[in-house]
Design a binder for these strands. Structure first.
Lengths: 101, 101
DNA sequence: CTTATCTTTGACAATATTTGTCAAAATAAA
DNA sequence: TTTATTTTGACAAATATTGTCAAAGATAAG
């Protein structure tokens, strides 16, 4: 259950690449990538798409990691986080039905 | 499975109160309350707390509605919304374990 | 120990998003 | 018609996000 940051740090270190290399590919300063990897900043969707390219991952795979990070972040230090999450899941199911069939 | 806006509109209309009355209680312009009720703007936590007071609801009850709205909003029009939501739920469970026991 | 490379930190700027006011237009009720 | 209520949209203020940059802190190599 890794965060996006943990995942890409592992991938990057697995290839023994410096932050600079990946950051340049993303078109951002290495300082930001450093922060993203350690969870101090959040990636944008564009970053995620490019990271999937860079590391040859399925885009949807990395997007789910990124989105779930965002959701968990949204209810960080909320007592009612889990309860809200469950209700939200139902709301999303309903939204989906509404958009499709 | 009402949104916060739907809930408070029903409550307000149930008491036959104009937007003005509730908006003044919240300390905001009625235009905003109108938008919140119709889901065009989002309430702040402060609004929610005051609304719970105003309508004599359990604060946590309304907070769950508000939080779940925020979560659902965060993944609006995302194909991977539901999948991300499920992963996020696990992440939240883990966070909780980390903070408590 | 010194130098070179890599990573982290923090101050700051630019941009985007959110939250609000206000006034006018639209709607509904008297 | 009037009067009260609600909705809309343009705009401003406040806040949050995303980024650069330069310096400080680690790590590794010579």
């Amino acid at each position: 259950m890794d965060s996006l940051g943990e995942r890409i740090r592992k991938l990057r270190e697995g290839k023994e690449l410096p932050l600079r290399t990946v950051a340049t590919y993303l078109g951002i300063d290495q300082a930001i990538l450093s922060k993203i990897e350690r969870g101090q900043r959040r990636a944008t969707r564009e970053h995620v798409v490019k990271l999937a390219m860079f590391f040859s991952l399925k885009e949807s795979d990395l997007l789910v990691t990124w989105l779930s990070d965002k959701l968990a972040y949204e209810v960080r230090d909320e007592d009612l986080a889990l309860e809200a999450m469950k209700v939200a899941e139902e709301k999303v199911k309903y939204q989906t039905r509404k958009n499709n069939g």
